[in-house]
Every structure is written in C-alpha cells, then in structure tokens.
Design a protein around this nucleic acid. Structure first.
Lengths: 209, 209
DNA sequence: ACCTGAACACCGTTCAAGT
DNA sequence: ACCTGAACACCGTTCAAGT
C-alpha cells in the first residue's frame, strides 16, 4: 500500500475513539483498533497526538465535557483541549445569547443538558475522573453557574461552593446511575431521570435557603 | 526456584493492588507487576481470581466501597465480592450498634466517612464508575440511609430518590475534587472538605423540606 | 506535513507441568 | 490446592523511511 491521504484530524480521531468506547468499552480502545477504524496505520495517530494515548485520553475528556450532543451520538464541536502549552483551538462559543430566565431555571436547564451529555458518553465517564481539562468551555460554564447562584442571593464566599456542589451532584448522579446499569434492581431511564430531578430540585432549594 | 508457599489470599492480592494503584495509578497495575510485589509469578494470581483482571477489578471495587479505612491506607476487612454465583464471604458486619443520634447527624456521619474512604482510594475511583458490587455492606448501607430519611419525614416514594441523591452527591463531590487535584486553582483539602460539607448540608436541608 | 512498516518491551491469559 | 514456566496474541511507542 502506497500513500494514504486519510485526511486524519484530531476531531475525526476523537469521534472514532468514542465510537469504539461506546461499542467495546474503554478497555476495548487500542491504538491499533483505532487505526483500523480510521483506515490508517495505528502509528499515524501519533502524528496528531504526539504524546500518545495519554494525550488522546485528555482530548477525549475535554471533548466529552464541552461537545454538544446532537443525534444519538457526537456531532460535537472541535476538541478544545488547551492542555499545557498548546494554543487552544477553541469551539465557536455558541453565541451565548443573554438568557433571561430566572436563575433556578437556568441552572436546571444546564444540569439536565450536562447529564444528557455525560450519559451519551457514559463509556468514557471514568476518563473524567482524573482529568479536568482547562478549556474555555469550562470557564464559560463556571461563569454561567456563578452568575446564576449570585442572582439566587448566595453570599460571595458561598458561590464557588455551590458551583462545586452542583457539579459534583451531576457527575455523581450519572456515575451512580451508570454504575447500577444492567443490575436487576436498577431503575429504568425514566425513573433515573425522575430521581435526578428530585435530587436536583432539593439541592437547589437547599443551596438558596 | 522450587516450591513457593507465598500464602497468597484474595485480600493480600487486593491490598497489594491498591498499593500499586496508589503509587503508579490504575494504568500502572499489571498482573506481572502485582505478582512481583507479592513475590510470586503473575500467573499465581489466576488461582485466586480465575476470571483474571476483570474479576480482580470487581473485587477491588467491592473492597473500596466496603472496607474500613484505618491508618493512612487500607487495613480493611475482607473482600466481600459476592459477584454472581460466589458464596459471598462477607465482612463481620461491624456490630451495627443502635445509633440514637438524630437522622441528619447519622447521614452526615455516614457521608463524611464515605468521602474519606473514596478519597483514600482515589486512584481506584474510576473502577467504581462501571461496577456496583452486590455486597451485604451495600445493602446495610442502603437500609441505614433509608431509615434515616424515613425518620426525616420523607414520603415513602421519595426515600429511594433521596438515597440515590445522597450517594450521587458523595461520589460526585470526591470525583470533582480528585479531578481538579494538582491544578493551580484547586482548593486545598481543608477548603475541599468545607465545600463538601456546605453542599451536603444544603442537600439534606433541601431533601427534608 | 503526513503516513508507513519493522522493531522492542511489555502486557493478559492459556495450558501443561510440577509439588 | 497452589504455584511455575513457556508460549501466544496483543498492546503502546520509537525510529527510520517513504512521499
């Protein structure tokens, strides 16, 4: 086989990797398998992720925490992945049109969207456990949450605590759900969503009182 | 080298595995390295975990969710690991002496102990993401939490939702903290604990109102 | 710049064998 | 029952080479 202009890109690699993770689990993702899926020798991936699998994992974690979920899978916007020195090719920022809904509706909407995203990439959930990507998307999110909690009347010192509590609740709820998936006593998605909302309402009520 | 009565046991293997995970991360745990640490050929481990690394991971997850933290590390009680057919050699059940403190104190005490345990084994946190061990310890815990929430005056249908919310919050808070560890803007352990308590109080207040 | 192909050290697991 | 040792298929990564 001669030359192969596979038209590889960070995003294509990440999306394909998420496909494999969805199908065979995180342990089923190998550089060679990923290469096969991309019609490329495994080593070609190293040209786009010079620091190898670790860097790919970081990029996936960044992608999962900032990509938009459109259909059943992916169709996200680029891999932000600022990661140390790199010049952070960032996503188009989504217009961020002023949202005039009350603070609790904004927080609820954000939380449910975040939950949906985490659930869509649940196979990669454990990657998020040890990687907190430094992306603009994350900063935007924190700003959004901080503003909402300020509007809710929280003391200045309490705002970052409330932001962390909400983040923790969302991540943990999805983890708890995925963790029990496939068990006979596991609730179905409808009940899981009901439970998520129940706890979310309680948390927001408790935080603002 | 002739015979080698290494005195291997499930518990010794698990504890040693957790040592390696603490030192080199989950990715640094290999059967061969684990064998070396136990002064044994890697293949000896398969006699105690016939289904290999997957079974070992399950056992570690079960251990982490039910072992007691004594000193800096481990010294937990045996690997419960009911796991499908197996006859569930369970831990001695810890006497479970009647606790007459009010419900919110009991829940707070449980949550903080759980957090401490998760933090002590934070390297194995991602193992918990896809494995929910079926142990007596877990059942005991759910019973304890259910009772407390019932005492708090929750409607019967709301009790399991509250239990899940609390579980999710604890797991997610630790995950969120570990995720940001080593980042320059990460809070220290004192502030992390303060944030955990802040969110926990809010959640309990919201759940019982 | 982008991709290949051979090579190296390491990995999980099986299987036959030892005591 | 408990452990060894060789073997096999697979893995991540490096490096020199091709275009």
């Amino acid at each position: 086989m001669s030359r192969n202009y596979a038209g590889l890109s960070r995003e294509r690699i990440i999306v394909e990797a998420l496909h494999i993770i969805a199908g065979r689990g995180l342990g089923g993702l190998s550089m060679r398998r990923l290469g096969d899926a991309l019609d490329v020798e495994a080593m070609a991936i190293y040209h786009h992720f010079p620091r190898g699998k670790e860097q790919l994992f970081n990029a996936i974690a960044a992608y999962v925490t900032t990509a938009r979920v459109v259909s059943g899978l992916t169709e996200g916007q680029g891999p932000p992945e600022a990661e140390e020195e790199e010049g952070s090719e960032e996503a188009p920022a989504e217009a961020a049109e002023a949202d005039d809904r009350p603070w609790d509706e904004r927080l609820t909407a954000w939380a449910e969207a975040y939950r949906t995203r985490l659930l869509a990439y649940s196979g990669a959930l454990s990657l998020l456990m040890h990687r907190a990507p430094h992306t603009l998307g994350e900063e935007d999110t924190r700003a959004l949450l901080r503003t909402a909690f300020s509007e809710a009347g929280l003391a200045e010192d309490d705002v970052p605590r409330a932001v962390d509590a909400l983040n923790g609740y969302c991540l943990g709820s999805v983890a708890h759900q995925v963790r029990h998936e496939g068990r006979e006593d596991a609730p179905d998605e409808a009940e899981a969503l009901a439970r998520f909302r129940f706890g979310l309402r309680a948390l927001l009520r408790g935080l603002s009182s």
